[in-house]
Write a protein that binds this DNA or RNA. Sequence first.
RNA 1: GGGAGUCGGCGAAGGGAGUUACAGAUUCGCACUAACUGCGAAUCUGAGGAAAGUCCGGACUCCCAAAGACCAGACCGCUGGGUAACUCCCAGUGCGGGCGACCGUGAGGAAAGUGCCACAGAAACAUACCGCCAAUGGGAAGGAUGAAGGCAGAAGGAGGAAUUCAUCCUUCACCUCUUCUUUCUCAUCCUUCCACAGGUAAGGGUGCAAAGGUGCGGUAAGAGCGCACCAGCAGCACUGAGAGGUGCUGGCUCGGUAAACCCCGGUUGGGAGCAAGGUCAAAGGAACCAAGGUUGGUCUUUUACCGGUUCCGCAGUAGAGAGCCGCCAGAGGCAUCUGGCAACAGAUGUCCCAGAUAGAUAACUCCCCUCGGAAGGCUGAGGAUUAGCCCCUUGAGAACAGAAUCCGGCUUACGUCCGGCUCCCUCCC
Length: 124
Amino acid sequence: MGLPEAHRLKHRQDFKAVYKRGSRCRGRYLTLRALPPSYLCESVQIGISISQKVSKKAVIRNRIKRQIRAVMQELLPQISPGWKLVVIVKPQAVACDYEHFLRELEELLTKAEVLNGHSRRGVL
RNA sequence: GGGAGUCGGCGAAGGGAGUUACAGAUUCGCACUAACUGCGAAUCUGAGGAAAGUCCGGACUCCCAAAGACCAGACCGCUGGGUAACUCCCAGUGCGGGCGACCGUGAGGAAAGUGCCACAGAAACAUACCGCCAAUGGGAAGGAUGAAGGCAGAAGGAGGAAUUCAUCCUUCACCUCUUCUUUCUCAUCCUUCCACAGGUAAGGGUGCAAAGGUGCGGUAAGAGCGCACCAGCAGCACUGAGAGGUGCUGGCUCGGUAAACCCCGGUUGGGAGCAAGGUCAAAGGAACCAAGGUUGGUCUUUUACCGGUUCCGCAGUAGAGAGCCGCCAGAGGCAUCUGGCAACAGAUGUCCCAGAUAGAUAACUCCCCUCGGAAGGCUGAGGAUUAGCCCCUUGAGAACAGAAUCCGGCUUACGUCCGGCUCCCUCCC
């Protein structure tokens, strides 16, 4: 995984908690679930969910995951600490490339008020 | 030059550099308490030929108590070799296909037995629908010969007697016998016709398949009925390690199906699978079921094991999406040599080459290369045009596809590139 281990969302309970109590933002290609910080966790934890409905080929699913991870890595400094995020990939995302994901995620994170305000104007 | 066959190689995204990140190994440093562990740095490594399908064969692990014999079951099926093993691989044999290089092959037994062979067809293991034949038997017509008689006619001779009339004598007629002719009957033979019995399995038609095939003779017509060649079968000889091959002789012809049962030969404990399994703390309690049971069967021998299931609870850590081990040095890769036609084996040297577990390879920048597109310039050429070079901009550099315990195969998907050898056709010398 492209992200440092501290920023990974690994356990089933964490995923369940995000699905149960987190807010939801829908985009064209992705859906973002976000759980606000609790005082126990300090770092941002990110998980990615991609089902076989998106593509039956593991190669394609892996490529999308890697690209999303790369985007998150770039956006990581701007995210307020403590959030737990799950990115759900929609079937339309098969045709996307890195630029698409970057724009979409920045939009979704802003919508969910996860970003700490210092938007990078240069990217857009 | 074109087409084809076969063998092999390669296939992170053309080559290189860098930045930011990820995973593992090793080393070092720091923290810590001894370990485990955590943090940081450096170096190295980081998906495939199919990683895929999960179809075979194994390694490994556990369960079924252990061993032996027989049976059952399962699997295999041309020969020889290779391998840990295989339904895999190599070399060959037979058969089939191709002009050929070559390719395909589930290839023991159908003359041990049983079964099945749909539809069609007369018949699918023994039959005769159409057809062919008229030898044999039968029927019809004609002819020839023969035999015995009957009838009729003619001729001849001989004999006999009654009645009527006339006369008196003969003839005719009548009866008997002989010969000839005609006709009928019977028998035999010949010719022609019929096809009722019969002969036939050449031909037609049906079918995947129809009683060895072709030719000549032969026959009433036919037929291995005879002969020649071919195919099949049996025997013998030679040859090969073997499957087989070659030759000779013989009698004479036998459908297919064994991925139907079966027969023959060979091999073989079964099951579950790395979520296997092992390991880690100081403990137990409750409920229910069972009271000789444990390998596919039988027999024998010896010992061995002993209740089972579910739920609750258990410390800093017993984790259900899982802590550590298993878990990556291996039937390993590469090179050379030796043996072998080869598959492969052996020896020596050298190398370490993924070990994740929400699952590691990404993002970006720069330079060069190849290809495509657009605009412009230069050079050679008489020109159209074409070729080369330079500059600018933009795009592309793939397809199938992602390790999950590990190996050996098979199958499927994909693709250009590259190369070797071989065959066929055409052209030139």
